[in-house]
Design a protein around this nucleic acid. Structure first.
Lengths: 353, 353
DNA sequence: GCTGCGTTGTGTATCGATACACAGATAGAG
DNA sequence: CTCTATCTGTGTATCGATACACAACGCAGC
């Protein structure tokens, strides 16, 4: 049962004005520029507003007239609750929300479902700018965002469409963490994010063409491969285990399957701490010693990674979120894919020698 | 540098209409009720829209005219990033967002900072309804929400102001988990949320008046006290350790202080898993055996609680979030504070005998 | 007494779309 | 051949506020 109408009807600014015996503009100024009206007039307005139960200017009307609605849109190329389920997204959004709070601007998560109506939902979102979370090259919501003409920024996502991109150099970073992961490896595996929005679980060998539609996945894969080949090994030895979702349970299941398979890996470089921590549990179940039988690396340096002693790649998604928010609010225009990162070596990798 | 204006200017529906050689209403219908126009006319409209770069009807204008903007407001009585920092809030919001996604409605986090302008921000939020997360009896944003006249619901928060409340019976639940926590206790302590928005860290004994402004804190405290007195002990023996924030680090610090203090507790009932897990680490640092030297309970049954073997009180915040969303969207009117909960006994408590 | 300036109040046009009622066309029924 | 029902297109009033320009007023300075 859709709400038919507000009942009792909300009073308008004009009604408050006539009840207070002043002009509409005086009421408007009372709310938007209190210094613009005399104390006397303001008192009359407040009394009338109180009496009629006027909650202040209607947000949609104000938004229409002013051209700004006071909220920042965030588009996740995923179902909506992903924002709260995925720790990485949550960290990023915490950074976005820090800036929003400081600016007094709301944060609107645009409802994405994967259906073709997503583009419409983007176009219909009443926001002042967009932040797009990591997505694939061919995601149609990117065009929808660009089409609005509002300030927009993409996090670690595809370049192009005139939108600035914020993030780190994933390829360089992957090469660095890969070096730590593969020190003594002979049968390494990369535990990966999905390649495209199809999200199929699969095991690829280096000889297969890896044509990932997600730039993040693609760049990290390239970086891991760089690390492997620079160590003098043939690229074809490096395998890629693609997990359809970024959950530790998924990482655990796939890692266990691999560890119990014909050619068990002796090194696993994961694209996230969640996948790595899942793999860590799988290793425990398989009775392996870390890092002797298996070396393991994660990505992002989540709290749980520190607790588990996981070697990982640290970056501040929170800072990147804040940076994105400032751009999308039109406060800054200089994007950067050179955010800082560093390798945190803990107990799941070995030093050379 | 605030964005001065969209450049190039966004075309209007009227311009599209004249470019397509049709009336504005035909364009409007093409977007809102595609079945209402002939295929021929729709094609002309789409061509013109494409040519002019028209992204669809202006959201604020549409919202004003229709009386709905297509987004649900969420008010957290905390700074905005709390939504992503606190695991309980995140679970709840995941439930809210599930419903929003299904309905094609956005989710707007209203920017709360603790400043007196918060009420204005609520009034200025362009949303179709409000969900208010657990707050204190005297929180001014409650009045602001009620004043909008929009459908609204409070989660586990104060009753009154004509707003429905959704949650569990915290007092009963606390009595149940308290019973498990206090089986063999002689010096029990409740590790608590803040009492009021002042958020001071303090240790209260049962003889002090506990006048918590947060209904959740108050009701859980009462329930824990019920459990203790029903076991035949004087209420004055039960102490209340108030943590200013719901973080495991805070729980750890305070618990360690208590465990190393003059009258170390032999049972700790925490109001959240975060606080309990912090206390668990403190116990480890103090060299205590669990549950022999110290029994411990949490609240919410987070993933980490299961991993740690923590006895806890399970409830589905996700379901409660979904329920709240349905009410705030006007789809349902029957609130309930009788959501289900149950005690999950694991390794940090002892069975009687 | 006149000019110039800061303060405070007001009227009007406008932001961009949609609800509603109505009109013309087409088609099927009797 | 008329009458009703369905489909498609249009004109107008309206949603509720704010930008802007202007007017009235008091007052200082010369």
């Amino acid at each position: 049962m859709k709400r038919p109408a507000d009942n009792p009807k909300r009073p308008t600014l004009r009604q408050v004005a006539s009840a207070a015996g002043v002009s509409p503009m005086t009421v408007s100024y009372t709310y938007s520029q209190p210094g613009r009206v005399s104390a006397e007039a303001a008192a009359k307005v407040r009394a009338a507003a109180q009496k009629l139960g006027y909650p202040g200017p209607h947000p949609a009307a104000r938004g229409l007239r002013r051209g700004r609605v006071g909220t920042l849109g965030v588009v996740l190329g995923e179902r909506l609750s992903y924002a709260f389920d995925d720790p990485q997204a949550a960290r990023f959004l915490a950074g976005v929300s820090d800036v929003c709070a400081a600016e007094g601007v709301g944060l609107t998560l645009v409802p994405i479902t994967g259906a073709p109506t997503d583009a419409q939902r983007v176009a219909q979102a009443a926001v002042d700018g967009f932040v797009v979370w990591t997505t694939s090259d061919d995601d149609p919501v990117l065009d929808a965002v660009a089409g609005t003409g509002l300030p927009a920024v993409v996090h670690a996502g595809p370049h192009g469409r005139g939108m600035p991109v914020v993030g780190i150099d994933d390829r360089d970073a992957a090469a660095a963490i890969g070096q730590a992961a593969f020190v003594t490896a002979r049968r390494p595996i990369v535990l990966s994010f999905p390649l495209d929005r199809g999200r199929t679980r699969q095991l690829l060998t280096g000889s297969d063409v890896v044509d990932a539609k997600f730039p993040v996945t693609r760049q990290r894969w390239e970086g891991f491969r760089d690390a492997w080949t620079r160590a003098g090994h043939p690229a074809t030895q490096l395998r890629l285990a693609v997990c359809p979702v970024n959950h530790s349970a998924e990482g655990e299941a796939f890692a266990l399957e691999l560890l119990q398979g014909a050619e068990p890996p002796d090194a696993i470089a994961a694209m996230s701490d969640e996948l790595a921590l899942g793999a860590l549990r799988a290793a425990a179940r398989a009775g392996l010693r870390i890092p002797d039988d298996l070396t393991l690396t994660g990505w992002d340096d989540a709290d749980a990674a520190a607790d588990a002693g996981l070697t990982t790649l640290a970056q501040s998604l929170r800072d990147q979120g804040a940076h994105c928010a400032r751009i999308a609010l039109g406060e800054s225009t200089d994007a950067s894919t050179r955010h800082r990162w560093h390798v945190v070596e803990r107990l799941t990798t070995r030093r050379p020698h």
